[in-house]
Design a protein around this nucleic acid. Structure first.
Length: 500
RNA sequence: GCGGGCAUAGUGUAGUCUGGUUAUCACAUAGGCUUGCCAAGCCUAUAACCCGGGUUCAAAUCCCGGUGCCCGCACCA
């Protein structure tokens, strides 16, 4: 579906809508409604079960989203989370200062202040790449972080976290105590991050407040966590950086063993495979729309030693879009926070040697994937609209309907209450025709519908039985009402993560 | 941020150029009747000119500002 159609459907059914909608909305901010919240929660829990549940050494924490300035100074966000821009007074074009000054400053402009950059622009007589005028200037840097006055006097500053990962680095020392174990240690956060984006667009794909799920795995570089054992033969779709550099844009399927043979660390490949299986088997993304795109040294952040972005081809956004990533961040984060805080964040090996742990970061955009689930699995099929969500992700697991409201209402309402008491997300509906009720459930991804009819309440052989309709096949089956709860519960169990 | 385009019920729209009755139609939604297993039919109801200012006897319509959305550029450590 196109972006507008998909967004309209999600708004209409109460999945999400713009924040402050009655005031015309606020760019880059969205609220989730009942169904959206339910889907988001299930997505978060599925992620947590798959990634955090993989090891007894992995823990999920719930940190705050406001941090003192020292944190973002140490992390490098304060100085690096802005990109100096050059604007042209003649044509109003805006360009990255680094690009404009490429010839004059081949080494780049890292660390220079805006006045210094402006001085270079002026003294070197650089012309506007767009209109050729020499009217370029450097505006005040645009800050991508939200800052807040903090404390009673407001003299200190605090910031809304621009990424949840920092919380895990801050928690590392405490969690070493809490976990009482040797490395590896995994710290997971599902939480909000905030960025004052210049141009939020494409609904859930560029937001100013968004939810990330991130697992940071801290490990001794001498003993990296995991290697593709049983999954060595699993193939994953990848686009390597060297092939892209040669202009080859096609994805290839390589086995874990091949990726290791090509020089990627085994533990890294292991996590790529594990990540891929989550996207394909748990979320149900079509394999042919997935790929892992390797970022070149130029493209990735300087502290990342390896970076593969998980991408899904989205019809609504007309292209492959990043839905997650696997970053090998080395010891950058703990070294920075160690130095800035004065705390020694290194760990002692069995032989007495100290080492600063390395970090493997598995990051997953919750909002983006919520949208991606709609894009990839929700569509118009002939005369109906169906969202083929995996049952354990569906906001509503079962719809209960009386075929004729007047006659079958008591039985149907009672059954709906029972299912709800059993912990099954249930919807009861008796409005309009039975076909329309099925259709309403199909478009929000409800995997099962139960209908109470004359047979259920009659005296014949069908007494006490109901029809159980499957969303995907539209097939109906006659089952005893007493068995419905067990049948549906079984289908709501998510796939278990492969343990290490 | 820059440039271009757009903004009318929940959705899609007519009307805007050329200002003038109670703002068109369809679907959706709610209630009723009927039917009784896949968006059927009939009746009824709810429901909109993005916000603010200006011009005018009169503004959905013209002008200005703002906001939001779409496309392109830029940005997305």
């Amino acid at each position: 579906m196109k972006i507008d159609e998909l967004y309209a459907l999600l708004r209409r059914r109460g999945f999400l809508w713009p924040t402050a909608e009655i005031y015309g909305g606020a760019q880059g901010l969205y609220d989730y409604g009942p169904l959206g919240r339910a889907l988001k929660r299930r997505l978060e829990e599925a992620w947590s079960a798959w990634f955090v549940g993989r090891s007894w050494d992995y823990y999920r924490i719930e940190p705050t989203e406001i941090v003192p300035e020292a944190v973002v100074r140490a992390s490098g966000h304060l100085e690096n989370f802005t990109d100096p821009e050059v604007t042209c007074a003649t044509c109003h074009g805006a360009f990255r200062a680094e690009t404009v000054l490429e010839k004059v400053r081949p080494d780049g402009i890292d660390g220079l202040t805006p006045p210094q950059i402006e001085e270079i622009v002026r003294s070197s007589h650089v012309r506007c790449p767009n209109c050729g005028a020499s009217t370029l200037s450097v505006p005040e840097p645009f800050h991508l972080m939200f800052d807040l006055p903090f404390g009673v006097r407001g003299g200190e500053r605090a910031y809304l976290l621009p990424e949840t990962a920092q919380s895990s680095y801050l928690a590392f020392a405490r969690m070493r105590e809490v976990g009482r174990k040797a490395l590896p240690l995994g710290i997971a956060v599902v939480g909000r991050a905030y960025r004052n984006e210049i141009a939020p667009r494409q609904v859930l794909f560029r937001m100013r407040a968004f939810t990330q799920a991130e697992l940071q795995i801290f490990f001794d570089p001498a003993e990296p966590p995991g290697a593709p054992g049983a999954s060595a033969s699993e193939t994953i779709p990848v686009l390597r950086a060297d092939r892209r550099a040669r202009g080859e844009g096609s994805t290839e399927r390589l086995s874990a063993a091949e990726l290791v043979a090509s020089g990627l660390p085994a533990f890294y490949v292991d996590h790529l495979v594990h990540y891929y299986q989550f996207l394909r088997d748990v979320l149900g993304y079509p394999a042919e729309r997935l790929r892992f795109l390797e970022k070149s040294e130029r493209e990735r952040a300087f502290y990342n030693r390896l970076q593969f972005d998980a991408e899904l081809h989205l019809e609504s956004l007309a292209g492959a879009k990043e839905i997650g990533a696997v970053h090998y961040r080395g010891d950058y984060d703990l070294t920075r926070h160690g130095a800035a805080s004065g705390r020694d964040l290194s760990v002692v090996r069995a032989d007495g040697q100290r080492v600063v742990p390395h970090v493997l970061e598995l990051t997953f955009g919750i909002d983006r994937n919520l949208w991606a689930l709609a894009d990839a699995l929700l569509g118009v099929e002939g005369d109906r609209t169906v969202w083929r969500l995996p049952p354990y992700l569906a906001p509503i697991a079962v719809g209960v309907f009386p075929l004729i409201a007047k006659e079958h209402r008591p039985f149907a309402q009672h059954l709906a209450e029972e299912l709800r008491s059993a912990g099954i997300p249930t919807e009861y509906d008796e409005a309009s025709s039975i076909g329309r009720r099925y259709a309403r459930m199909d478009e929000v991804g409800t995997p099962y519908c139960v209908t109470v009819d004359a047979g259920t309440v009659g005296d014949g052989p069908e007494r006490g039985t109901v029809t159980l309709r499957a969303r995907d096949s539209k097939a109906q089956e006659r089952v005893p009402a007493a068995e419905v709860a067990a049948r549906i519960s079984a289908a709501l169990r998510p796939p278990w993560p492969p343990s290490r």
